[in-house]
Design a protein around this nucleic acid. Structure first.
Length: 211
DNA sequence: ATAGAGATTGCCT
DNA sequence: GGCAATCTCTATA
């Protein structure tokens, strides 16, 4: 089966439901006049809505920055972090929920040479897209992509289906870099993929520690 | 108005 | 392992 666009309806669930299902999907940058650059999603994090998840940008309601998170599922929410880098999220849930899934790492597929030119500081293949800021740089994602519809074949950024990831091959753990709601194991990753950022999540679906 | 923290990365010791 | 770079939002005045 060839890759097809992810169906918007499949993003209608809660962030913590959708986050593991995005593993294995492809994030594709298809910009006019430029070579296609893409990678398989290997790490995600779920972020909840207003008053629900203290670590989420939407916890205190709508702002200019987080407006896209309150729109329909399938849009890309891009924000600047630490004044330096960009982070990309897939908006999920129902229109108005303010929920999204942060894409934390990719396994490079198409356009690796372009990624290398955009990530001159990467010294190894696994440095190219092994973090939310790194993958945005590699795919050329910035603030001008905020709000792009990933479920539209005419978009410069698209979300496409990939191979199925077995439940037993998924690891989960606490989200990275946050100081609030640190107890929620809302980070998901494909076990043993070299592009997953550190520290690697260690829990199985049953909550058992791996290794 | 001003200050401090933040969903990160890379360079330094 | 520590820490600087530097934009946006929030809290406090």
């Amino acid at each position: 089966m060839p890759q097809r666009l992810v169906d918007r309806d499949s993003l209608a669930g809660s962030a913590v439901e959708v986050a593991p299902r995005l593993l294995g999907c492809r994030l594709v940058a298809a910009r006019p006049g430029q070579p296609v650059v893409s990678g398989v999603i290997v790490e995600t994090e779920a972020y909840g809505g207003v008053g629900d998840d203290e670590a989420s940008h939407t916890f205190r309601g709508r702002t200019e920055r987080n407006a896209v998170m309150f729109g329909p599922a399938g849009r890309l929410y891009v924000y600047r972090i630490y004044g330096m880098h960009w982070c990309a999220n897939v908006v999920v849930g129902a229109d108005g929920d303010g929920t999204a899934v942060l894409v934390r790492a990719l396994s490079p597929r198409m356009g690796v040479d372009v990624m290398e030119s955009r990530r001159p500081k990467a010294r190894r293949a696994s440095d190219l897209t092994s973090g939310p800021g790194k993958l945005c740089a590699a795919l050329g994602i910035d603030g001008s992509d905020d709000g792009v519809d990933l479920c539209d074949s005419r978009s410069p950024l698209q979300l496409r289906t990939g191979r199925h990831i077995d439940r037993t091959a998924i690891r989960r753990g606490p989200r990275v870099g946050i100081t609030k709601a640190v107890d929620r194991p809302w980070r998901f990753a494909i076990a043993d993929d070299p592009n997953v950022s550190r520290p690697r999540p260690r829990l199985t679906d049953e909550g058992e520690s791996d290794r």
